[in-house]
Write a protein that binds this DNA or RNA. Structure first.
Lengths: 213, 213
DNA sequence: GAATGTGAATTTATTCACAGCA
DNA sequence: TGCTGTGAATAAATTCACATTC
Protein backbone atom coordinates (compact mmCIF):
# COMPACT_ATOMS: atom_id res chain seq x y z
CA UNK A 1 0.00 0.00 0.00
CA UNK A 2 2.86 2.36 0.62
CA UNK A 3 3.73 1.74 -2.99
CA UNK A 4 0.60 3.44 -4.27
CA UNK A 5 1.48 6.50 -6.28
CA UNK A 6 5.18 6.16 -5.74
CA UNK A 7 6.88 7.32 -8.85
CA UNK A 8 10.26 6.05 -9.82
CA UNK A 9 12.77 8.39 -8.31
CA UNK A 10 15.85 8.96 -10.48
CA UNK A 11 19.01 7.69 -8.81
CA UNK A 12 20.60 11.14 -8.83
CA UNK A 13 17.69 12.74 -7.02
CA UNK A 14 18.22 10.86 -3.77
CA UNK A 15 21.59 12.29 -2.72
CA UNK A 16 20.30 15.72 -3.74
CA UNK A 17 17.45 15.38 -1.25
CA UNK A 18 20.10 15.10 1.44
CA UNK A 19 21.56 18.41 0.28
CA UNK A 20 18.17 20.08 0.38
CA UNK A 21 17.49 18.72 3.84
CA UNK A 22 20.75 20.05 5.16
CA UNK A 23 20.20 23.51 3.77
CA UNK A 24 16.60 23.57 5.01
CA UNK A 25 17.70 22.65 8.53
CA UNK A 26 20.22 25.45 8.38
CA UNK A 27 17.51 27.89 7.28
CA UNK A 28 15.23 26.71 10.09
CA UNK A 29 18.01 27.21 12.60
CA UNK A 30 18.33 30.77 11.32
CA UNK A 31 14.63 31.34 11.87
CA UNK A 32 13.64 31.31 8.19
CA UNK A 33 10.25 29.69 7.73
CA UNK A 34 9.55 30.07 4.05
CA UNK A 35 11.73 29.49 1.00
CA UNK A 36 11.34 29.47 -2.78
CA UNK A 37 12.97 27.02 -5.15
CA UNK A 38 14.94 29.98 -6.49
CA UNK A 39 16.35 30.84 -3.06
CA UNK A 40 17.29 27.24 -2.40
CA UNK A 41 18.79 26.93 -5.86
CA UNK A 42 21.04 29.93 -5.32
CA UNK A 43 22.15 28.72 -1.91
CA UNK A 44 23.05 25.26 -3.21
CA UNK A 45 24.19 26.32 -6.66
CA UNK A 46 21.68 24.31 -8.66
CA UNK A 47 18.90 25.00 -11.14
CA UNK A 48 15.55 25.92 -9.54
CA UNK A 49 13.57 23.68 -11.88
CA UNK A 50 15.74 20.78 -10.85
CA UNK A 51 14.76 21.27 -7.24
CA UNK A 52 11.06 21.56 -8.03
CA UNK A 53 11.22 18.48 -10.20
CA UNK A 54 13.02 16.52 -7.48
CA UNK A 55 10.26 17.41 -5.03
CA UNK A 56 7.60 16.51 -7.56
CA UNK A 57 8.54 12.82 -7.40
CA UNK A 58 7.13 12.80 -3.89
CA UNK A 59 4.09 15.08 -4.22
CA UNK A 60 3.11 18.74 -4.24
CA UNK A 61 4.28 20.66 -1.20
CA UNK A 62 4.56 24.26 -2.28
CA UNK A 63 2.18 27.16 -2.65
CA UNK A 64 2.12 28.93 -6.00
CA UNK A 65 3.20 32.50 -5.78
CA UNK A 66 4.65 31.90 -2.32
CA UNK A 67 7.09 29.04 -2.05
CA UNK A 68 7.63 26.25 0.45
CA UNK A 69 7.23 26.17 4.20
CA UNK A 70 10.60 25.19 5.60
CA UNK A 71 9.22 23.06 8.42
CA UNK A 72 6.86 20.99 6.37
CA UNK A 73 9.42 20.52 3.62
CA UNK A 74 11.87 19.20 6.21
CA UNK A 75 9.21 16.73 7.34
CA UNK A 76 8.52 15.58 3.82
CA UNK A 77 12.15 15.00 2.95
CA UNK A 78 12.89 13.38 6.28
CA UNK A 79 10.13 10.88 5.59
CA UNK A 80 11.01 10.44 1.94
CA UNK A 81 14.55 9.50 2.90
CA UNK A 82 13.38 7.13 5.61
CA UNK A 83 14.99 9.24 8.31
CA UNK A 84 11.96 9.16 10.58
CA UNK A 85 13.27 5.94 12.04
CA UNK A 86 16.59 4.81 13.45
CA UNK A 87 18.95 2.60 11.51
CA UNK A 88 21.44 0.27 13.15
CA UNK A 89 24.94 0.62 11.76
CA UNK A 90 27.96 -1.65 12.12
CA UNK A 91 31.48 -0.75 11.10
CA UNK A 92 33.61 -3.56 9.73
CA UNK A 93 37.31 -2.77 9.98
CA UNK A 94 38.67 -0.91 13.01
CA UNK A 95 41.63 0.70 11.25
CA UNK A 96 42.35 4.42 11.01
CA UNK A 97 39.28 5.25 9.01
CA UNK A 98 36.89 2.89 10.78
CA UNK A 99 37.81 4.21 14.22
CA UNK A 100 37.64 7.82 13.04
CA UNK A 101 34.13 7.21 11.75
CA UNK A 102 33.12 5.47 14.96
CA UNK A 103 34.18 8.43 17.03
CA UNK A 104 32.53 10.94 14.75
CA UNK A 105 29.46 12.25 16.56
CA UNK A 106 27.51 13.72 13.63
CA UNK A 107 26.84 10.11 12.80
CA UNK A 108 24.32 9.38 15.52
CA UNK A 109 22.67 12.78 15.30
CA UNK A 110 20.96 11.81 12.06
CA UNK A 111 19.34 8.66 13.39
CA UNK A 112 22.20 6.34 12.52
CA UNK A 113 23.00 4.28 15.58
CA UNK A 114 26.34 2.53 15.77
CA UNK A 115 25.71 -0.88 17.32
CA UNK A 116 29.01 -2.68 16.77
CA UNK A 117 32.47 -2.69 15.26
CA UNK A 118 34.30 -5.70 13.95
CA UNK A 119 37.93 -6.39 13.17
CA UNK A 120 40.12 -9.42 12.62
CA UNK A 121 43.18 -8.15 14.46
CA UNK A 122 43.59 -9.37 18.04
CA UNK A 123 45.31 -6.13 18.97
CA UNK A 124 42.17 -4.01 18.51
CA UNK A 125 39.47 -6.48 19.54
CA UNK A 126 37.96 -5.35 22.82
CA UNK A 127 38.89 -1.69 22.40
CA UNK A 128 36.13 0.92 22.40
CA UNK A 129 35.70 3.85 20.02
CA UNK A 130 32.76 6.14 20.51
CA UNK A 131 29.75 3.90 21.02
CA UNK A 132 31.26 0.83 19.46
CA UNK A 133 33.19 -1.91 21.20
CA UNK A 134 35.33 -3.88 18.75
CA UNK A 135 34.36 -7.54 18.34
CA UNK A 136 36.03 -10.29 16.40
CA UNK A 137 34.75 -10.67 12.83
CA UNK A 138 34.26 -14.32 13.70
CA UNK A 139 31.20 -13.17 15.66
CA UNK A 140 29.71 -11.30 12.74
CA UNK A 141 27.00 -13.77 11.76
CA UNK A 142 26.12 -14.52 15.36
CA UNK A 143 25.74 -10.81 16.12
CA UNK A 144 23.60 -10.13 13.05
CA UNK A 145 21.29 -12.98 14.06
CA UNK A 146 20.73 -11.43 17.46
CA UNK A 147 20.69 -7.74 16.72
CA UNK A 148 19.46 -6.20 13.48
CA UNK A 149 22.19 -4.55 11.39
CA UNK A 150 20.65 -2.29 8.75
CA UNK A 151 23.75 -0.68 7.35
CA UNK A 152 27.33 -1.92 7.25
CA UNK A 153 30.18 0.52 6.82
CA UNK A 154 33.08 -1.40 5.33
CA UNK A 155 36.58 -0.09 6.02
CA UNK A 156 38.59 -3.27 5.58
CA UNK A 157 41.56 -3.60 3.20
CA UNK A 158 40.70 -3.92 -0.49
CA UNK A 159 41.76 -7.56 -0.56
CA UNK A 160 39.14 -8.50 2.02
CA UNK A 161 36.27 -6.32 0.90
CA UNK A 162 34.52 -8.74 -1.45
CA UNK A 163 34.58 -11.63 1.03
CA UNK A 164 33.51 -9.40 3.91
CA UNK A 165 30.59 -8.03 1.94
CA UNK A 166 29.49 -11.50 0.93
CA UNK A 167 29.33 -12.46 4.59
CA UNK A 168 27.34 -9.34 5.39
CA UNK A 169 24.86 -10.03 2.61
CA UNK A 170 24.49 -13.64 3.72
CA UNK A 171 23.82 -12.35 7.23
CA UNK A 172 20.97 -10.22 5.91
CA UNK A 173 22.52 -6.77 5.51
CA UNK A 174 20.90 -4.90 2.60
CA UNK A 175 22.77 -1.58 2.59
CA UNK A 176 26.52 -1.10 2.52
CA UNK A 177 28.78 1.91 2.52
CA UNK A 178 32.07 0.67 1.11
CA UNK A 179 35.30 2.61 1.63
CA UNK A 180 37.51 -0.17 0.32
CA UNK A 181 38.90 0.74 -3.10
CA UNK A 182 37.24 -2.08 -5.03
CA UNK A 183 33.98 -2.48 -6.89
CA UNK A 184 32.13 -5.29 -5.17
CA UNK A 185 29.50 -7.51 -6.67
CA UNK A 186 26.24 -7.97 -4.79
CA UNK A 187 22.90 -9.57 -5.58
CA UNK A 188 19.81 -7.53 -6.47
CA UNK A 189 18.20 -5.83 -3.53
CA UNK A 190 21.51 -5.01 -1.86
CA UNK A 191 22.59 -1.41 -2.28
CA UNK A 192 26.29 -0.60 -2.15
CA UNK A 193 27.44 3.00 -2.15
CA UNK A 194 31.09 3.45 -2.84
CA UNK A 195 33.29 6.13 -1.31
CA UNK A 196 36.51 6.10 -3.23
CA UNK A 197 39.17 8.51 -2.04
CA UNK A 198 41.78 7.50 -4.53
CA UNK A 199 39.36 7.97 -7.44
CA UNK A 200 38.56 11.42 -6.11
CA UNK A 201 42.20 12.37 -5.88
CA UNK A 202 42.81 11.05 -9.38
CA UNK A 203 39.93 13.14 -10.73
CA UNK A 204 41.57 16.19 -9.17
CA UNK A 205 44.89 15.19 -10.69
CA UNK A 206 43.25 14.93 -14.12
CA UNK A 207 41.86 18.42 -13.74
CA UNK A 208 45.16 19.95 -12.62
CA UNK A 209 47.07 18.28 -15.40
CA UNK A 210 44.66 19.64 -18.03
CA UNK A 211 44.79 23.14 -16.60
CA UNK A 212 48.57 23.26 -16.71
CA UNK A 213 49.12 23.05 -20.44
CA UNK B 1 50.29 21.77 -28.14
CA UNK B 2 49.16 19.20 -25.64
CA UNK B 3 45.68 20.38 -26.47
CA UNK B 4 45.82 19.14 -30.01
CA UNK B 5 43.33 16.39 -30.56
CA UNK B 6 42.09 16.40 -27.00
CA UNK B 7 38.45 15.55 -27.09
CA UNK B 8 36.13 16.70 -24.36
CA UNK B 9 36.06 13.97 -21.80
CA UNK B 10 32.66 13.43 -20.15
CA UNK B 11 32.75 14.19 -16.44
CA UNK B 12 31.71 10.67 -15.51
CA UNK B 13 34.52 9.08 -17.50
CA UNK B 14 37.31 10.42 -15.28
CA UNK B 15 36.54 8.59 -12.04
CA UNK B 16 35.95 5.46 -14.11
CA UNK B 17 39.49 5.68 -15.45
CA UNK B 18 40.64 5.35 -11.86
CA UNK B 19 38.66 2.13 -11.57
CA UNK B 20 40.19 0.75 -14.73
CA UNK B 21 43.65 1.67 -13.57
CA UNK B 22 43.17 -0.10 -10.28
CA UNK B 23 41.91 -3.28 -11.90
CA UNK B 24 44.68 -3.21 -14.51
CA UNK B 25 47.35 -2.91 -11.83
CA UNK B 26 45.80 -5.85 -10.07
CA UNK B 27 45.88 -7.85 -13.28
CA UNK B 28 49.51 -6.92 -13.87
CA UNK B 29 50.38 -7.99 -10.34
CA UNK B 30 48.79 -11.35 -11.14
CA UNK B 31 50.94 -11.66 -14.24
CA UNK B 32 48.19 -11.05 -16.77
CA UNK B 33 49.50 -9.11 -19.73
CA UNK B 34 46.55 -8.88 -22.08
CA UNK B 35 42.93 -8.08 -21.46
CA UNK B 36 39.77 -7.48 -23.51
CA UNK B 37 37.12 -4.87 -22.78
CA UNK B 38 34.77 -7.76 -22.08
CA UNK B 39 37.07 -9.22 -19.42
CA UNK B 40 37.51 -5.84 -17.77
CA UNK B 41 33.79 -5.17 -17.96
CA UNK B 42 32.98 -8.40 -16.17
CA UNK B 43 35.54 -7.78 -13.48
CA UNK B 44 34.28 -4.27 -12.78
CA UNK B 45 30.61 -4.91 -13.49
CA UNK B 46 30.22 -2.43 -16.33
CA UNK B 47 29.27 -2.54 -20.00
CA UNK B 48 32.16 -3.40 -22.34
CA UNK B 49 31.22 -0.68 -24.85
CA UNK B 50 31.36 1.85 -22.06
CA UNK B 51 34.95 0.94 -21.34
CA UNK B 52 35.96 1.10 -25.00
CA UNK B 53 34.24 4.44 -25.42
CA UNK B 54 35.97 5.82 -22.32
CA UNK B 55 39.34 4.81 -23.77
CA UNK B 56 38.42 6.29 -27.15
CA UNK B 57 38.46 9.84 -25.73
CA UNK B 58 42.20 9.45 -25.36
CA UNK B 59 43.13 7.52 -28.48
CA UNK B 60 43.26 4.00 -29.88
CA UNK B 61 45.21 1.59 -27.75
CA UNK B 62 43.82 -1.83 -28.51
CA UNK B 63 44.34 -4.42 -31.19
CA UNK B 64 41.25 -5.70 -32.99
CA UNK B 65 40.68 -9.36 -32.46
CA UNK B 66 43.13 -9.36 -29.56
CA UNK B 67 42.44 -6.78 -26.86
CA UNK B 68 44.63 -4.43 -24.85
CA UNK B 69 48.11 -4.85 -23.50
CA UNK B 70 47.86 -4.38 -19.75
CA UNK B 71 51.17 -2.58 -19.39
CA UNK B 72 50.64 -0.03 -22.11
CA UNK B 73 47.07 0.61 -21.03
CA UNK B 74 48.33 1.33 -17.52
CA UNK B 75 50.78 3.83 -19.00
CA UNK B 76 48.10 5.52 -21.04
CA UNK B 77 45.67 5.90 -18.14
CA UNK B 78 48.41 6.98 -15.76
CA UNK B 79 49.32 9.76 -18.16
CA UNK B 80 45.73 10.65 -18.98
CA UNK B 81 45.00 11.15 -15.29
CA UNK B 82 48.14 13.19 -14.75
CA UNK B 83 49.58 10.60 -12.41
CA UNK B 84 53.03 10.59 -14.03
CA UNK B 85 53.96 13.45 -11.75
CA UNK B 86 53.73 14.10 -8.02
CA UNK B 87 51.09 16.37 -6.52
CA UNK B 88 51.57 18.24 -3.26
CA UNK B 89 48.67 17.79 -0.89
CA UNK B 90 47.75 19.74 2.24
CA UNK B 91 45.12 18.70 4.76
CA UNK B 92 43.15 21.49 6.39
CA UNK B 93 41.56 20.37 9.65
CA UNK B 94 43.41 17.99 11.96
CA UNK B 95 40.34 16.41 13.53
CA UNK B 96 39.47 12.72 13.54
CA UNK B 97 39.09 12.44 9.80
CA UNK B 98 41.98 14.72 8.85
CA UNK B 99 44.45 12.85 11.04
CA UNK B 100 43.18 9.48 9.86
CA UNK B 101 43.76 10.55 6.26
CA UNK B 102 47.22 11.90 7.10
CA UNK B 103 48.27 8.60 8.58
CA UNK B 104 46.85 6.59 5.73
CA UNK B 105 49.75 5.29 3.68
CA UNK B 106 48.00 4.40 0.41
CA UNK B 107 47.88 8.13 -0.05
CA UNK B 108 51.52 8.69 -0.95
CA UNK B 109 51.81 5.49 -2.93
CA UNK B 110 49.85 7.04 -5.79
CA UNK B 111 52.05 10.10 -6.18
CA UNK B 112 50.15 12.28 -3.73
CA UNK B 113 52.63 13.81 -1.34
CA UNK B 114 51.38 15.24 1.94
CA UNK B 115 53.32 18.44 2.55
CA UNK B 116 51.44 20.02 5.45
CA UNK B 117 48.48 19.94 7.79
CA UNK B 118 46.71 22.96 9.22
CA UNK B 119 44.38 23.46 12.15
CA UNK B 120 43.10 26.34 14.23
CA UNK B 121 43.18 24.57 17.59
CA UNK B 122 46.24 25.23 19.75
CA UNK B 123 45.96 21.74 21.24
CA UNK B 124 46.86 20.00 17.98
CA UNK B 125 49.25 22.53 16.42
CA UNK B 126 52.74 21.07 16.44
CA UNK B 127 51.64 17.45 16.57
CA UNK B 128 52.70 15.10 13.79
CA UNK B 129 50.57 12.59 11.91
CA UNK B 130 52.19 10.51 9.23
CA UNK B 131 54.25 12.87 7.13
CA UNK B 132 52.41 15.99 8.17
CA UNK B 133 53.28 18.30 11.04
CA UNK B 134 50.28 20.40 12.06
CA UNK B 135 50.70 24.16 11.53
CA UNK B 136 48.43 27.00 12.49
CA UNK B 137 45.94 27.98 9.80
CA UNK B 138 47.25 31.51 10.26
CA UNK B 139 50.31 30.34 8.32
CA UNK B 140 48.28 29.02 5.41
CA UNK B 141 48.90 31.83 2.92
CA UNK B 142 52.54 32.13 3.89
CA UNK B 143 53.08 28.41 3.41
CA UNK B 144 51.34 28.35 0.02
CA UNK B 145 53.55 31.21 -1.14
CA UNK B 146 56.69 29.24 -0.28
CA UNK B 147 55.72 25.70 -1.17
CA UNK B 148 53.34 24.74 -3.94
CA UNK B 149 50.07 23.17 -2.76
CA UNK B 150 48.29 21.45 -5.63
CA UNK B 151 45.46 19.80 -3.76
CA UNK B 152 43.79 20.75 -0.50
CA UNK B 153 41.87 18.14 1.48
CA UNK B 154 39.36 20.02 3.61
CA UNK B 155 38.20 18.33 6.82
CA UNK B 156 37.14 21.37 8.82
CA UNK B 157 33.66 21.76 10.39
CA UNK B 158 30.85 22.69 8.00
CA UNK B 159 30.60 26.19 9.38
CA UNK B 160 34.18 26.99 8.40
CA UNK B 161 34.36 25.23 5.06
CA UNK B 162 33.34 28.08 2.76
CA UNK B 163 35.72 30.59 4.37
CA UNK B 164 38.57 28.07 4.44
CA UNK B 165 38.11 27.23 0.80
CA UNK B 166 38.03 30.90 -0.17
CA UNK B 167 41.40 31.35 1.50
CA UNK B 168 42.78 28.32 -0.31
CA UNK B 169 41.56 29.59 -3.66
CA UNK B 170 43.02 33.03 -2.97
CA UNK B 171 46.31 31.33 -2.14
CA UNK B 172 46.31 29.64 -5.54
CA UNK B 173 44.94 26.16 -4.85
CA UNK B 174 43.00 24.85 -7.85
CA UNK B 175 41.82 21.43 -6.68
CA UNK B 176 39.96 20.66 -3.48
CA UNK B 177 38.64 17.50 -1.90
CA UNK B 178 35.95 18.64 0.49
CA UNK B 179 34.71 16.39 3.30
CA UNK B 180 32.74 19.14 5.04
CA UNK B 181 29.02 18.59 4.56
CA UNK B 182 28.33 21.79 2.61
CA UNK B 183 28.27 22.71 -1.04
CA UNK B 184 30.89 25.38 -1.49
CA UNK B 185 31.00 28.03 -4.19
CA UNK B 186 34.24 28.46 -6.12
CA UNK B 187 35.25 30.45 -9.19
CA UNK B 188 35.76 28.82 -12.59
CA UNK B 189 38.96 26.86 -12.89
CA UNK B 190 38.81 25.54 -9.35
CA UNK B 191 37.61 21.96 -9.08
CA UNK B 192 35.91 20.83 -5.89
CA UNK B 193 35.06 17.19 -5.38
CA UNK B 194 32.70 16.54 -2.55
CA UNK B 195 32.79 13.49 -0.29
CA UNK B 196 29.59 13.51 1.65
CA UNK B 197 29.18 10.75 4.20
CA UNK B 198 25.83 11.87 5.48
CA UNK B 199 24.37 12.03 1.96
CA UNK B 200 25.64 8.50 1.39
CA UNK B 201 24.04 7.21 4.56
CA UNK B 202 20.79 8.94 3.68
CA UNK B 203 20.79 7.35 0.24
CA UNK B 204 21.14 3.97 1.97
CA UNK B 205 18.31 4.88 4.32
CA UNK B 206 16.09 5.74 1.36
CA UNK B 207 16.79 2.37 -0.18
CA UNK B 208 16.12 0.43 3.02
CA UNK B 209 12.89 2.30 3.65
CA UNK B 210 11.61 1.53 0.15
CA UNK B 211 12.52 -2.13 0.41
CA UNK B 212 10.65 -2.60 3.66
CA UNK B 213 7.11 -1.92 2.44
C1' DG C 1 37.11 -15.77 -35.56
C1' DA C 2 37.61 -12.33 -32.24
C1' DA C 3 37.61 -7.95 -30.34
C1' DT C 4 38.21 -2.99 -31.29
C1' DG C 5 36.37 1.65 -32.37
C1' DT C 6 32.47 4.29 -33.22
C1' DG C 7 28.22 6.15 -35.46
C1' DA C 8 23.32 5.51 -34.38
C1' DA C 9 19.70 4.42 -31.14
C1' DT C 10 18.24 4.56 -26.68
C1' DT C 11 17.87 5.89 -22.08
C1' DT C 12 18.49 9.09 -18.44
C1' DA C 13 18.99 13.67 -16.64
C1' DT C 14 18.66 18.62 -16.95
C1' DT C 15 16.71 22.82 -18.29
C1' DC C 16 13.30 25.62 -20.54
C1' DA C 17 9.08 27.80 -20.66
C1' DC C 18 4.58 28.47 -19.50
C1' DA C 19 -0.18 27.34 -17.82
C1' DG C 20 -2.36 27.51 -13.46
C1' DC C 21 -3.06 28.99 -8.96
C1' DA C 22 -2.55 31.86 -4.47
C1' DT D 1 2.30 39.51 -9.63
C1' DG D 2 5.17 35.65 -8.17
C1' DC D 3 6.23 31.06 -7.82
C1' DT D 4 4.85 26.24 -8.31
C1' DG D 5 4.33 22.05 -11.04
C1' DT D 6 5.16 19.90 -15.23
C1' DG D 7 4.99 18.77 -20.22
C1' DA D 8 8.20 19.61 -23.98
C1' DA D 9 12.88 20.50 -25.54
C1' DT D 10 17.59 19.80 -24.89
C1' DA D 11 21.68 17.78 -23.33
C1' DA D 12 24.38 14.04 -21.53
C1' DA D 13 25.38 9.35 -20.84
C1' DT D 14 24.84 4.61 -21.96
C1' DT D 15 24.19 0.81 -24.86
C1' DC D 16 23.59 -1.33 -29.28
C1' DA D 17 25.24 -3.12 -33.37
C1' DC D 18 28.33 -3.54 -36.94
C1' DA D 19 32.07 -2.37 -40.21
C1' DT D 20 36.87 -2.82 -39.65
C1' DT D 21 41.17 -4.82 -38.61
C1' DC D 22 44.38 -8.19 -36.76
Amino acid sequence: MRNVDRKDVPAVTVPRLALYLRKLRELRARGVDRVSSKDLAEAIDLNAAQIRKDFSYFGEFGTRGVGYEVDSLIDVITHSLGLHRTWNVAIIGAGLLGTALARYRGFGEQGFHLVAMFDSSATVIGASYGEGRVRSVAELEEFCAEERVDIAVVTVPASEAQATIERLVAAGVRAILNFAPVRVHTPDGVLVRQVDLSSELMALSFHLDRESD
